[in-house]
């Protein structure tokens, strides 16, 4: 994301790998030392703008730097766009989980039998309308039963900075309620 949005005339793929090595990895290591168990990389650029075929390899290199010997779960979250065209390549990336914006992406495009975790963006971070707890549970069950990721994480589809705090709090509350309900159902 940073390498694409940066104001630069330099090679953006070299910048991406350099940022991974010199900025993100030290920051991630510090976060893990401080107790973080999950590192959630946000990448709206890929969802909104897309990615060229030749950029997948350097993206893989950058993520390899971040994932190598990491003692935490590493997730790469694509949002503000349809992840469906990229699912095949996303599942090849060296990360533990892939995040998908399900407001923009069809659940059926996710396929099934994932070899990674799924960060399911089920809360709309751009809308003030509160999600239905029942719908959230239904979606989570569908994902668990059909996509069958190694781990299922329920999340907002994007960051929540575009919502007033009071609305964001209500949405997170519903997300937590839905997660508890799904766990109950799964444990039965």
């Amino acid at each position: 994301m940073f390498s694409r949005a940066a104001h630069t005339d330099q090679d953006r793929n070299r910048l991406m790998v350099g940022l991974a090595e010199q900025v993100l990895r030290p920051a991630i290591d510090a976060a893990v030392r401080a107790g973080s168990e999950m590192i959630h990389l946000e990448d709206p650029w890929l969802g909104y703008v897309g990615i060229t075929r030749e950029d997948w390899a350097p993206l893989t290199d950058a993520l390899t730097i971040l994932h190598r010997d990491l003692k935490a779960t590493l997730a790469f979250h694509v949002y503000f766009g349809d992840a469906a065209p990229h699912i095949g390549q996303l599942l090849q990336l060296p990360v533990d989980a892939i995040g998908v914006d399900l407001v923009q992406t069809d659940v059926k495009a996710l396929g099934s039998g994932w070899n990674k975790g799924l960060v399911a963006g089920v809360i709309n971070g751009r809308s003030s309308i509160l999600e239905s707890p029942k719908d959230l549970v239904d979606v989570a069950r569908y994902l668990a039963d059909t996509v069958r990721p190694r781990n299922l994480y329920l999340s907002s589809n994007s960051e929540l900075g575009y919502l007033p705090t009071v609305v964001a709090e209500q949405k997170v509350q519903r997300l937590g309620d839905a997660a508890r309900k799904v766990k109950e159902l799964v444990s039965v």
């Binding site: 407001v103 069809d106 659940v107 495009a109 003030s128 309308i129 979606v139 569908y142």
Partner: peptide, 20 residues
């Protein structure tokens, strides 16, 4: 602005193209 004229949230199990 937010648009809350229709307060029904999206059902994410519906096809994304139709929701869009």
């Amino acid at each position: 602005s937010f648009d809350e004229r229709n307060r029904a949230p999206e059902n994410l199990l519906q096809p994304a193209a139709e929701r869009a």
